[in-house]
Simulated scan of single mutants.
Amino acid sequence: MANLTEESLMSLFIRMYYNETSISSGTAFIVTSSSGYFLITNRQNITGRNSETNKPFFPTGAIPKWRYIITG
């Protein structure tokens, strides 16, 4: 079972980019376990697509190539 650390209880602001263009933002958190650290976030933050239709959220069809975590 994963250990809950103080860091695991804090949400992190993440921003997704297509090349140099910011196309969305969201939240995530980190969980630690005996296997290492894991970033937990929603599927759409990774894929840039609607979960029901699988269509990209960004009007040009851009999907995230880069993701940055911004901490406190």
Results as ranks from 00 to 15, higher is better:
residue 28 A to C: 07
residue 12 L to R: 14
residue 50 N to I: 02
residue 25 S to N: 11
residue 34 S to P: 03
residue 53 T to F: 03
residue 28 A to F: 00
residue 23 I to R: 09
residue 56 P to N: 10
residue 68 Y to C: 09
residue 59 P to V: 05
residue 19 N to H: 14
residue 45 N to L: 06
residue 47 T to W: 01
residue 55 K to C: 05
residue 69 I to V: 14
residue 7 E to P: 01
residue 66 W to S: 13
residue 44 Q to C: 08
residue 7 E to Y: 03
residue 55 K to A: 12
residue 49 R to M: 06
residue 46 I to S: 01
residue 38 F to R: 04
residue 69 I to S: 07
residue 29 F to Y: 14
residue 56 P to H: 04
residue 11 S to R: 13
residue 6 E to N: 13
residue 13 F to I: 07
residue 44 Q to P: 06
residue 29 F to P: 02
residue 41 T to E: 02
residue 62 A to I: 01
residue 8 S to W: 02
residue 9 L to C: 10
residue 30 I to F: 05
residue 26 G to A: 03
residue 68 Y to S: 10
residue 45 N to P: 02
residue 6 E to M: 10
residue 38 F to G: 04
residue 30 I to Q: 07
residue 22 S to T: 06
residue 33 S to G: 15
residue 6 E to L: 14
residue 33 S to I: 05
residue 59 P to Y: 09
residue 11 S to F: 08
residue 33 S to T: 15
residue 19 N to A: 12
residue 59 P to D: 08
residue 31 V to Q: 11
residue 10 M to H: 14
residue 41 T to W: 02
residue 29 F to L: 10
residue 48 G to F: 01
residue 64 P to Q: 05
residue 14 I to M: 00
residue 9 L to S: 11
residue 62 A to S: 12
residue 17 Y to A: 02
residue 58 F to E: 15
residue 19 N to Y: 07
residue 70 I to G: 02
residue 36 G to I: 02
residue 70 I to F: 12
residue 22 S to Y: 03
residue 36 G to P: 04
residue 32 T to V: 06
residue 19 N to L: 09
residue 67 R to Q: 13
residue 46 I to H: 01
residue 31 V to T: 11
residue 46 I to D: 01
residue 35 S to I: 08
residue 59 P to T: 05
residue 69 I to Q: 10
residue 35 S to N: 14
residue 20 E to D: 15
residue 15 R to P: 00
residue 1 M to L: 11
residue 25 S to F: 08
residue 52 E to G: 12
residue 55 K to Q: 14
residue 41 T to P: 00
residue 63 I to H: 05
residue 59 P to N: 07
residue 62 A to W: 09
residue 29 F to N: 08
residue 39 L to A: 04
residue 18 Y to G: 05
residue 42 N to M: 06
residue 33 S to F: 03
residue 64 P to M: 04
residue 70 I to N: 08
residue 56 P to R: 05
residue 3 N to C: 09
residue 42 N to R: 02
residue 18 Y to R: 08
residue 40 I to C: 06
residue 32 T to N: 14
residue 10 M to L: 14
residue 69 I to P: 00
residue 50 N to V: 01
residue 14 I to T: 04
residue 34 S to L: 10
residue 50 N to M: 04
residue 52 E to Q: 14
residue 8 S to A: 15
residue 36 G to E: 06
residue 59 P to M: 00
residue 23 I to T: 12
residue 72 G to A: 09
residue 59 P to W: 04
residue 55 K to D: 13
residue 67 R to T: 13
residue 13 F to D: 13
residue 60 T to V: 05
residue 53 T to S: 15
residue 43 R to G: 00
residue 39 L to R: 01
residue 53 T to Q: 08
residue 32 T to W: 03
residue 37 Y to W: 07
residue 20 E to L: 09
residue 26 G to Y: 00
residue 44 Q to K: 09
residue 23 I to N: 08
residue 25 S to I: 00
residue 22 S to Q: 14
residue 68 Y to H: 11
residue 27 T to M: 02
residue 44 Q to W: 11
residue 63 I to V: 15
residue 61 G to C: 05
residue 22 S to D: 06
residue 69 I to A: 11
residue 12 L to A: 04
residue 35 S to D: 15
residue 26 G to I: 00
residue 62 A to H: 13
residue 17 Y to N: 03
residue 72 G to R: 09
residue 35 S to R: 13
residue 39 L to D: 03
residue 17 Y to C: 05
residue 60 T to E: 15
residue 69 I to D: 02
residue 9 L to M: 14
